[in-house]
């Protein structure tokens, strides 16, 4: 019983971090219908930045993650302007391939700079935990999850309460309508993509603290992100958050009751199972029909 409670709490904490990690992907897909396969690589890039800065300065990695938000925003902006927007104009079908190419190239660059050794940022509280009776809550997990949830709240506030956020949501519903109220649609798309990339900063920092990673780890992480959005039904934030928690708990249960070696298989199994049995996602998020009704 304790083990189950412990496992569920652990899974929930992980799910909170996963929710932040997948939020940027969901944003980009929801607004632009673009599957950004470089999202995992952005997480790993942020993780490397975090680890490197932590290694040099000793500043808390999660705090570094907050600071890196600006950097990842810039990287997202550049990525959109140089690759994504251009491919969209040439052949939208190839956006997927191009973003995958970006991911592969990024892992090459990371390997050249920092090598292929496994890295992890291990702050002082790394191996400590809080005990609640028999239940143990690791501090790193807890801090990462709290940070992630706060950032998700901030993202929500940004999308709901600011002019930029409303413009993004307006473009997602009707680009024509958005253009007619004077929104610069192209610029808003770039901002949106950059915000999506910015969410990987803290996500990557949490990754750097909680997991070991190498440049090639971006495959594992895009796998997790894809699993989360497939579970949640593409493009829905609430669905993705629920998918993140399900994946977190699923992995924790697998590790606790079966075999840790199989935890990495959980996302892929879930992807295949969901796409065969319920391609619209667990919560049946409706895909908007964009046809005219004439």
């Amino acid at each position: 019983m304790t083990l189950l409670a412990q496992t569920l709490i652990f899974g929930l904490l992980t799910g909170g971090v996963y929710a932040l990690m997948s939020s940027g992907f969901t944003l980009t897909f929801g607004v632009m219908r673009v599957i950004n396969l470089a999202h995992g690589a952005l997480l790993i890039v942020a993780a490397f930045f975090t680890w490197w800065l932590w290694d040099r300065t000793g500043i808390d990695p999660l705090l570094l993650g907050l600071g890196l938000t600006v950097v990842m925003y810039g990287i997202g902006w550049v990525l959109y302007k140089t690759v994504i927007a251009r491919v969209q104009r040439i052949d939208p079908e190839l956006t997927l391939v191009a973003s995958f190419g970006v991911a592969v190239a990024a892992s090459g660059v990371l390997s050249l700079i920092w090598g292929t050794e496994a890295r992890a940022a291990t702050p002082s509280y790394f191996n400590t935990s809080i005990s609640l009776g028999e239940i143990v809550i690791p501090r790193a997990q807890l801090y990462a999850c709290v940070g992630a949830v706060l950032l998700l709240a901030a993202l929500y506030a940004l999308l709901r309460g600011t002019f930029v956020g409303r413009s993004i949501r307006a473009c997602a519903t009707s680009r024509n309508g958005a253009a007619l109220v004077g929104i610069d649609v192209e610029r808003t798309m770039a901002q949106m993509f950059a915000i999506g990339a910015a969410t990987t900063a803290f996500g990557g920092a949490a990754l750097a603290v909680l997991y070991q990673f190498v440049p090639d780890s971006h495959y594992v992480w895009i796998g997790r992100v894809l699993c989360i959005v497939v579970l949640g039904g593409f493009g829905s934030f609430a669905g993705a958050a629920a998918g993140a928690v399900i994946l977190g708990i699923g992995e924790a249960l697998t590790a606790a009751y079966w075999d840790t070696r199989w935890t990495t298989a959980v996302p892929y199994l879930l992807i295949i199972a969901i796409l065969i049995l319920r391609p619209q996602g667990l919560f049946g998020a409706r895909h908007r029909l964009e046809g005219a009704t004439t």
Binding site: G101, A103, V104, A105, A106, S107, G108, L112, T116, P215
Partner: peptide, 8 residues
């Protein structure tokens, strides 16, 4: 690494 960079 170079190969990845090249392919990507």
């Amino acid at each position: 690494a170079v190969r990845l960079l090249l392919f990507g």
